[in-house]
Design a protein around this nucleic acid. Structure first.
Length: 870
DNA sequence: AGCACGCCGACT
DNA sequence: GTCGGCGTGCTC
């Protein structure tokens, strides 16, 4: 047999499998998803096995053998390898990049596995675990205790399948250590005595000597669950020496066990029971339950207003999914992955919840990941990359706040977790639930394409958008005839829309007031607080209620400007303004890290009138202190939340009412739920409205709606004050009236007119190189090649407005940041609609403009479905 | 990505 | 005559 291996060289020239011979002793251990070390061009590289075949494509004499097997249990399953393939194709990235994104970063070195008999296998008669005790390898393990898997592999050829099955059934315990990078932590653990009855008798007859040791023994007899040595000592008020003494007498037993880092250990989670569902929740849950029972892949768009109780529906759907012995993945935007959120899932599902997010150390992440792979977890809650949670049978994938742009990865692989989730669900016959109060236009369009007349009346009616994401037909995983025979063809293609228009307990949505800041200015108020907001804040202070203030800072950062000559400090390596950092009094570049001392006077005109525009939130904080002496403000922005855990610390403080005002950027808009918040103020609603990005209005509407939803979620009614210079803009008016439908209707008109998603799809190609001329000429070459290819494929080059397929290649033009790290940047935008195979054409075009080494002359970076255009 | 092979300028 | 510049091409 030979293995087909993707080597870890992220380049187009090596982005194909290379064949290797499987050495006799690895036979049976190497499978699809295995991580191996292979000789490649004179050195040994890491690679992933993506196929096993009887024969190689090349002459067998040229084959080299796999040098080493890096893990005995493959870190990836065949279905994840297949998913990586899909990601590589769709997002135009090397396959190895997609594969690497699926495993925890800790898994980079060689993993050494040690197996031993599990407690079960020692005690039970082996028959229950379907063990053949006569197997020589089994005898060997029994004799030696802990055995390295690599050794078993060497000594017992052909035993691979049997050993792996034993691990899977829990007869063997596998412990992994990764070469020098990560050691599994060992901890001393106290177990009850091996012969409890004898010890009981002994204790009954014992003298009063060694009272503490006896106490320890009685404790372990009464509470036979293993406990950490240190914890027991603390519990009994004894020293570890005392307990060791008891162990020496045989009254209890101390053994080394593997410590699994549990970042949430020690925090008791109050168990919660399913809440009775409201009528609206019940309807939605019913639909989800039915789809779960069908085990056919489907996508649902759960459009629920803020406070409508989406999370409870998620929880009950997960419970339903687990009943069928299928696992669930919950994706949450990174920023919303707060303890509050985790608590809700841990509270309902306890230890079978694994949590994955970027704030964990790589060791913690690895342990949570293993908990999933080894079947000790059934629910994974996490950010974007949790979509790759290595479950065997995924039944449900929930994407909360589906519209969030953080689901798009900005580095390669530039995947969108929502689209990957839909694909993964197809593989598993799972359902996807996209939840949001403000669905993205892409998802909304996908859902409305399949909607019936009744729904259509309640929402805007877009049509002719065939550029939408294909959210797919029900999977044919079971091979059964299509369940949806009675539904229209359209219904089978898109997502099903599930509206939840009411808040729980009939609580009203908060009243939103718009304040026209131009009038304030005319009235002589030059402060950043309107009279109305000032008044409302004062009222909250008097009543002891809390307020949330949002400074919509998107699109402007802190910078330095000379008021005499207009000079602004620029990065010498990038075409971008330097950012001012008050703490270090330094000017920094966000893109290349360049830093310099902030100047005392203008370097250009020597004027003293150089001004540092500090972070907006700082200025608001200062003004608050001036206007409301004694006011307690918590400021949350990048400066105050970089420290690990600081985010949670501030929120806890605010929850305990240790502050009157929570002031911050986007991060205060998401997912917070505090009962005493009755006022939400938006300092400047428009800053994100006029960005040169086609999603500017959508982002503004989403932000306003989300932040307004923070008010009045409990008994006290809420009020929202939005300050704006554009009170007539549809994004702002729609947010004021909580009218998603009105917003969508208007926004879709613009998108259609401008031919932007969801009426087409985009691919952004950015070219970069030190030499400007080369970037321009290669850009021209690429655009021309693409146009030729499209024409040859018989695809029209422009939108005819009739909904038919086309590919339009725009550019090359200079990128919004035309130079970064001393490299010039140009970009081409590909707009297309329908099945044009645009990604495939682009790959072809890139290889056509590439040299004989398979590499283009300039760096080309491809972003499929870009989220930020700017 | 690395590393080897290969064809033209300034050195012992 | 040789050491070494980095252009082109390959890696199972």
């Amino acid at each position: 047999m030979i293995a087909r291996v993707i080597v870890d060289v992220p380049s187009r020239a090596t982005d194909r499998p290379f064949d290797y011979a499987i050495p006799a002793d690895m036979e049976g251990w190497v499978e699809v998803g295995s991580r191996v070390g292979v000789p490649f061009g004179g050195r040994v590289l890491q690679g992933f096995v993506v196929g096993i075949a009887p024969f190689a494509d090349i002459d067998a004499k040229r084959l080299k053998p796999i040098a080493e097997l890096l893990d005995h249990i493959p870190p990836l399953s065949p279905d994840l390898v297949e998913l990586a393939q899909w990601i590589g194709d769709k997002y135009c990235c090397p396959l190895t990049t997609a594969l690497q994104a699926m495993i925890p970063s800790a898994l980079k070195g060689k993993a050494d596995s040690v197996v031993s008999l599990s407690e079960d296998a020692k005690e039970e008669d082996a028959g229950q675990l379907q063990l053949d005790v006569a197997e020589p390898w089994f005898q060997y393990i029994r004799q030696h205790g802990e055995v390295r898997l690599a050794l078993l592999q060497e000594r017992f050829p052909g035993a691979a399948a049997g050993i792996k099955a034993a691990i899977r059934r829990g007869a063997l315990t596998e412990e992994v250590s990764i070469r020098d990078r990560l050691k599994v932590r060992k901890v001393l653990t106290v177990f009850p005595p091996d012969n409890p009855d004898a010890v009981r008798a002994e204790l009954a007859a014992a003298t009063p000597r060694a009272a503490k040791q006896q106490e320890a023994a009685r404790y372990m007899l009464a509470n036979p669950t293993p406990i950490a040595l240190a914890a027991l000592a603390q519990e009994l008020g004894a020293t570890t020496g005392t307990i060791r003494g008891a162990a020496e007498k045989g009254w209890l037993s101390i053994r080394e066990t593997e410590q699994r880092r549990d970042p949430y250990a020690g925090r008791g989670f109050k168990r919660t029971e399913p809440l009775p569902l409201t009528e609206g929740q019940q309807t939605v849950f019913g639909e989800l339950a039915e789809a779960l029972d069908n085990e056919a892949s489907r996508v649902f768009l759960l459009h629920g207003v803020t406070g409508s109780g989406k999370t409870e529906v998620y929880l009950q759907a997960i419970a339903r999914c687990l009943l069928a012995e299928r696992q669930a993945i919950v994706l949450v935007p990174e920023i919303a992955l707060t303890p509050q959120m985790v608590e809700r899932f841990k509270g309902r599902f306890g230890d079978s919840v694994a949590v994955l997010h970027s704030r964990l150390s790589s060791g913690e992440r690895y342990d949570e990941w293993r908990k999933i792979r080894e079947g000790r977890a059934e629910v994974a809650v996490g950010a974007r990359s949790a979509v790759f949670a290595p479950f065997r049978r995924v039944g449900l994938i929930i994407i909360d706040e589906e519209h969030e742009s953080s689901y798009k990865q900005e580095e390669s692989p530039k995947y969108h977790a929502r689209d990957v989730a839909v694909q993964r669900a197809r593989q598993h016959g799972a359902i996807v639930v996209l939840g949001s109060a403000t669905p993205s236009l892409e998802s909304f369009a996908a859902a409305s394409a399949s909607r019936g007349q009744a729904d259509r009346a309640a929402y805007a009616s877009p049509s002719g958008h065939t550029g939408q994401t294909d959210y797919g037909s029900p999977a044919v995983r079971t091979g059964q005839p299509d369940q949806a025979g009675d539904r229209s063809a359209a219904a089978k293609r898109g997502a099903a829309l599930l509206p939840m228009p009411d808040r729980v307990a009939g609580r009203p949505l908060p009243k939103v007031h718009l304040v026209d800041m131009r009038d304030e200015l005319k009235g002589g108020n030059r402060s950043m607080f309107s009279r109305q907001l000032h008044e409302a804040l004062l009222q909250r202070l008097e009543r002891g209620e809390q307020s949330v203030l949002l400074l919509n800072r998107r699109g402007y950062s802190t910078f330095v400007m000379c008021r005499s000559c207009g000079y602004t400090a620029q990065c010498p390596h990038c075409d971008i303004s330097l950012t001012y950092h008050q703490k270090s009094r330094a000017l920094r570049c966000h893109y290349c890290g360049h830093a310099e001392q902030a100047p005392e006077k203008c370097p250009s005109c020597e004027s003293e009138h150089i001004r540092f525009f500090g972070t907006g939130t700082q200025r608001v904080e200062e003004e608050l202190a001036k206007l409301f002496p004694g006011i307690r403000v918590i400021r949350m922005d990048v400066d105050t939340t970089t420290e690990k855990g600081s985010h949670e610390k501030w929120l806890t403080m605010f929850g305990e009412r240790q502050a009157d005002v929570l002031l911050g950027t986007q991060m205060v808009a998401k997912g917070l739920d505090f009962p005493y918040v009755t006022l939400v103020g938006v300092i400047a609603a428009d800053t994100s409205l006029h960005l040169p990005d086609f999603r500017a209005a959508e982002k503004t509407f989403q932000l306003l709606t989300q932040v307004a939803g923070r008010a009045g979620r409990h008994e006290l009614p809420g009020e929202v004050i939005v300050q704006t210079y554009n009170p007539e803009h549809y994004a702002i008016i729609s947010a004021q009236h909580h009218d998603y439908s009105a917003f969508v209707q208007e926004e879709l008109k613009h998108r259609r007119f401008m031919a932007y998603p969801p009426f087409c799809r985009l691919i952004l190609v950015t070219l970069s190189h030190e030499q400007l001329a080369l970037v321009v000429s290669e850009g021209e070459k690429l655009a021309a090649t693409l146009r030729d290819l499209a024409r040859a494929a018989g695809i029209r080059g422009s939108d005819e407005g009739d909904g038919s397929r086309f590919i339009d290649i725009l550019g090359p033009v200079a990128s919004p940041i035309p130079r970064m790290k001393d490299r010039y940047r140009f970009q081409c935008m590909i707009k297309y609609r329908g099945s044009t195979g645009a990604a495939e054409l682009l790959k072809q075009a890139i290889s056509l403009v590439s040299g004989s080494n398979g590499q283009p002359a300039v760096t080309m970076s491809v972003d499929v479905d870009p989220q930020v255009i700017l």
